[in-house]
Design a protein around this nucleic acid. Sequence first.
DNA 1: ATACTATTTGCGACAATGTCGCATCTGAGA
DNA 2: TCTCAGATGCGACATTGTCGCAAATAGTAT
Lengths: 150, 150
Amino acid sequence: MASAPHLLNALKERNVRLTRQRRVVLDALAVSGNHVRAEDLLREGRKRDPNLDRATVYRTLAMLKEHGLIDELDLLHLDGRGHYYEMRGHQDHVHIGCTECGRVTELHSPIVQALLDEVASHTGFRATSARIEVQARCPECAGGNAREQR
Amino acid sequence: MASAPHLLNALKERNVRLTRQRRVVLDALAVSGNHVRAEDLLREGRKRDPNLDRATVYRTLAMLKEHGLIDELDLLHLDGRGHYYEMRGHQDHVHIGCTECGRVTELHSPIVQALLDEVASHTGFRATSARIEVQARCPECAGGNAREQR
DNA sequence: ATACTATTTGCGACAATGTCGCATCTGAGA
DNA sequence: TCTCAGATGCGACATTGTCGCAAATAGTAT
Ligand SMILES: [Zn+2]
Ligand SMILES: [Zn+2]
Ligand SMILES: [Zn+2]
Ligand SMILES: [Zn+2]
């Protein structure tokens, strides 16, 4: 439990009401890895509160997103039409998805910040977050023609 | 009409069958500005072919995307849950959406290419396209309210 | 021009994902 | 403990996208 102390504290500071259900969703977020779908969170959360409702999960995700505490991705819809969520870390990173095998890799790079600076200086928009999703072929799929499974 | 000669030629070169419906969708794409939703294309396309079907539009979009001729965006879902399409130009660019007024701006920058190079050298993934969507507050919306950033 | 055939289309039924109104419930401060 | 603004559960709904299959058709060959 309390597996997401950072988020819990952030919500307290912002005077967001801490309901049992919200704690459950936060726990589910912490337990699941990155790139979780809403339905996964619902299933995971119901292990702790079997009455947890689909709408509550969506409403909680929307709230967390508004507060900038999670990011929403769709990983280029390489697999289905849903969206994915992950807790926001210290800095934005790049998501790279292979169009053939579906593998997703992350890359942290200072160039991301450089890009945001460029955005600010050229357009005057002050960025609050960035989503960078690169479509690619991974070394395995590009090299041999070995078919991987997903 | 032939309002999208570039796409038409690309399809011919690839021996993709040029049906009446596909021409209609291409025309609709050319007539509509950037950031068009599938349903917009359906409505626009039906002006030319009233029997144009929803499934055909989606199938055509999927085909164009597979050939790398269009990009799919969701503009951070600042407005609804749908996705947007635009013809691919010579190089990828950055989409910047204001979280308050919803205005979307584009930015072309050499840093995008630098980022893709970084991806290649660090991960070995060979990028075929990049989607960069920045969430921000535009100068007008930021002006009135100097509030916390993050 | 006509015939041929692999592809594509329209259609309808369906699945997945997300949203909303409203009655009820509850977290958190007093 | 009391109180009530705000959160939840529920169900009904909307949107967005998908699929199988019979019928139509683009491109090619004759
Ligand atoms: Zn990630
Ligand atoms: Zn999306
Ligand atoms: Zn791969
Ligand atoms: Zn704005």
